[in-house]
Design a protein around this nucleic acid. Structure first.
Length: 749
RNA sequence: UGGGGUAUCGCCAAGCGGUAAGGCACUAGUUUUUGGUACUGGUAUUCGGGGGUUCGAAUCCCUCUACCCCAUCCA
């Protein structure tokens, strides 16, 4: 498998390789306050998947720190989802509430360290004191309480001596932090509420930011993977663990983009609204993106798993096309499921020249699905076909039955339309047809060519079934709420007709109704007396698509105009420097701009310039490479100095080394702080410019890549870079690229 | 507006200085007793915009733009 791995797996692999952890431990930590949806599935697949791939384990942990919203019924739904997807959480499900005593002790420890205090501001005051994104907040006067007082108050909070909201425990961090989350975050609040597991034992409950990192630590989690909106919380995560000085190893948090799918909603709040508002029949309504919904609809766990693998993991907010999900389920079911005949909208057909009855042996699977199994389909003179499959005045390209065009009854005979019977309103109510006796499927000697084979059922033996046709719940690609609901998301067909074997033999619970789609025997409402099938997904329909594309699809797609914003003006000193650089030293304006605007860079540059009079060469390396290092570090933290950079540039000026090698040497200097001359000497990096040495290498490369030579000669000039790259690789980067370029160009002419 | 993120095809997504992977969707054709499947081909001279460095930039530097997250005693 050359499938590239995602950034999380890359991190995990590195951590394992470096010995940071002996074993990888992840966790799936939902809050049990709602039904899991396909976004959770993504998280489950990531967390359990990584644990599986790297032979570690993944805990299922209920993050139950808020007693007012959580419930045990959600715990069950969550367990169900994980299990259904095929993952194993080991011996037991974990609960953050199990750690409440330990968490309390950690909080006490923080208080003793002077790192946490009991605050008694009101909720509004706390908000007010926090400041805004642009203004610093200010600390509460209660932050001055002594450790003893804090300890006492906190203990009494625990004992339940105070009312809800009277006090909170806060971390003492920084009320003016640019990251709002770090402005003395709340650690505990008072809640005289019944917890679905802890009962009434506690009157204080830990906040997410305090509980989550510690729960991870307690469980020995190594990689704490969550969604993007927790990026800002990572600082607290680290603060708590670091401040407590816990024994390593400890977990680190990484974030990925949550899943969005078009034409659906994924937020717990909106899902709850739909369920409570009665827009859907419950958490397991087949139109919902809940796991329970997909399960009820007939999706397989494999299809969800494949979908999650297919969409990848990254940090960019994105909206996945439902078509991708639909592909996953079709792709999975295609090779698994029996094909049967079902008529959704029946049109009576009387075969006037057929008498009696017979049974036709028909395979459940098409030729390209390597599965065994067949059933008998009854045939007689009275049958039903799909109303869509007959047209009196067909458009061009219509393959089905018409007054002029015969059609094959799937697995059966070819029939021709003889007469169209209509009611008084002109609606077609029946077709009189003739069958061709020598055209039976498998032993056709009629020589009649038909364009298609259609589904049908024998009137007498067919079973009546209810079929529920589901479509997307919303008509808008990015729905806001109930106003965007698709009014046709559910169509119930009470009297569909299906061949009897489906009901009597029950060869499976999922079927392909030929030419229509995949269907699932509803696990709740299905009974032998009243069979009910849910449409999982339709088959791809290139005919339907072709019909629709009658009207032109206009694509206004105005090219987006990029507006360039104002660049911040330079200060006077910066402007003076800029002028000096461009005028006296001959730097181009971009380089001069970079240098002049950055104090550290310009002084570094000046220093190097004092050693070596090579203004342009120095400016380039300082404004590009040194700048990169100075982004993360202060000048005095660098392992190399201006003098060494001057030395490096001198070698480039001398043509001792090429620019490419200079970069390589620079990297080494960043790491070790060694002198450039020494690095060049140690690694033998002196550049090769002698054509007589380079030429044979080029010949070799050319000989090895005849295809690319041909492509190049055919006009693919990009390949020049390929050849140069190869030669440079062969020489360990030492060949003089300019010389190589000229030589290659010449040889390939 | 301060901070933190993210921009590569219609939708996802690889790529980490040397020929712009792959999947979905779309499209053309072959096979087909499912207008399904399978198979074959076509789909980015270009990586949010503009500059710069380099023989060579999606990748390094500068700068601008757009979008997302943060001011719950939710998670």
């Amino acid at each position: 498998m050359s499938k590239s791995k995602d950034f999380l797996r890359t991190i995990v692999e590195e951590d394992l390789k470096s010995g940071k952890y002996k074993e990888v431990v992840t966790r799936f930590p939902p809050e049990p306050n709602g039904f899991p949806h396909i976004g959770h599935a993504k998280s489950i697949v990531i967390n359990f998947g990584i644990a599986r791939d790297y032979h570690g384990h993944c805990n299922l942990r209920m993050d139950d720190t808020n007693p007012t919203t959580e419930d045990t019924k959600y715990v069950e739904a969550l367990k169900d989802a994980v299990q259904w997807l095929g993952f194993d959480w080991g011996n037991s499900v974990h609960f953050t509430s199990d750690y409440f005593p330990k968490l309390y002790d950690y909080a006490v420890e923080l208080i003793k360290m002077g790192k946490a205090y009991v605050d008694s501001l009101t909720e509004e005051e706390i908000r007010e004191y926090r400041g805004t994104v642009t203004e610093a907040g200010r600390r509460s006067k209660y932050a001055q309480r002594s450790i003893e007082e804090n300890l006492d108050l906190f203990e009494r909070m625990k004992k339940g001596e105070f009312k809800d909201g009277e006090h909170v425990l806060r971390a003492r961090i920084d009320m003016s932090a640019a990251n709002m989350k770090m402005r003395d975050p709340l650690l505990y609040r008072i809640r005289h509420a019944h917890h679905f597991r802890a009962g009434d034992e506690w009157s204080i409950y830990p906040m997410y930011d305090f509980a989550h990192c510690l729960a991870d630590y307690i469980e020995g989690v190594t990689h704490s993977i969550c969604t993007l909106e927790f990026e800002n919380n990572r600082d607290i995560y680290n603060w708590v663990l670091d401040t407590l000085g816990l024994k390593p190893p400890r977990p680190y948090q990484y974030e990925f983009a949550r899943l969005n799918i078009n034409y659906t909603v994924m937020s717990k709040r909106k899902l709850l609204e739909l369920v409570e508002g009665g827009q859907v029949s419950g958490w397991d309504d087949p139109r919902l993106p809940t796991i329970a919904g997909y399960k009820r609809r007939g999706y397989t766990p494999e299809s969800i798993l494949n979908f999650c693998d297919g969409i990848g993991i990254a940090k960019a907010n994105s909206m996945v096309d439902v078509a991708q999900l639909e592909f996953s389920i079709r792709d999975d079911l295609n090779t698994k499921v029996p094909r049967v005949l079902c008529v959704l909208d029946p049109l009576k057909v009387t075969i006037v020249n057929y008498e009696g009855s017979e049974e036709i042996e028909a395979s459940y699977y098409p030729h390209d699905v390597p599965k065994e199994g067949s059933r008998k389909i009854p045939f007689s003179k009275d049958i039903y076909i799909e109303r869509d499959d007959f047209m009196e005045n067909p458009p061009k390209g219509y393959f089905r039955l018409t007054p002029e065009q015969p059609v094959r009854l799937r697995h059966g005979y070819i029939i021709s339309c003889k007469e169209v019977i209509k009611d008084t309103n002109g609606n077609i109510v029946e077709i009189k047809a003739e069958y061709h006796p020598d055209s039976k499927s498998g032993s056709d000697t009629s020589g009649i060519k038909v364009k298609s084979a259609i589904q049908w059922v024998s009137a007498k033996e067919a079973k009546t079934v209810e079929v529920r046709l589901y479509d997307r719940l919303f008509k808008e690609e990015a729905p806001e709420g109930v106003e965007d609901i698709n009014p046709d998301s559910l169509q119930v067909i009470k009297n569909a007709l299906i061949e009897p074997a489906v009901i009597t033999e029950k060869p499976d619970e999922r079927f392909q109704f030929e030419r229509q789609g995949y269907f699932y025997a509803d696990p709740i409402n299905y009974s032998d007396e009243h069979p009910v099938f849910n449409k999982i997904v339709g088959l791809k329909d290139s005919w339907g698509k072709k019909k629709k594309t009658g009207e032109p699809v206009p694509k206004p797609q105005a090219k987006k105009v990029q507006i360039d914003g104002e660049v911040v003006a330079m200060s006077e000193e910066q402007q003076a420097l800029f002028d000096k650089y461009t005028n006296a030293l001959g730097l181009n304006s971009e380089v001069a701009n970079t240098l002049a605007r950055d104090e550290q860079l310009s002084s570094f540059y000046e220093e190097a310039l004092a050693v070596l009079n090579s203004p342009v060469g120095l400016a380039n390396i300082v404004s590009n490479d040194v700048a990169r290092e100075l982004k993360e570090k202060q000048a005095n933290e660098l392992k190399f100095n201006a003098k060494q950079i001057a030395e490096l540039v001198k070698m480039v000026d001398d043509a001792t080394i090429s620019n490419k090698i200079a970069k390589q040497v620079f990297e080494e200097m960043v790491k070790s702080g060694e002198n450039p001359t020494q690095v060049v000497k140690d690694k033998g990096l002196v550049q090769i410019s002698d054509p007589s040495i380079i030429a044979p290498i080029i010949d070799e490369i050319i000989a090895k890549n005849p295809d690319n030579v041909a492509k190049f000669k055919a006009g693919n000039t990009k390949l020049l870079g390929f050849f140069v790259g190869q030669v440079l690789k062969a020489t360990g980067g030492k060949a003089n690229p300019k010389v190589v370029n000229e030589l290659v160009a010449e040889k390939l002419k």
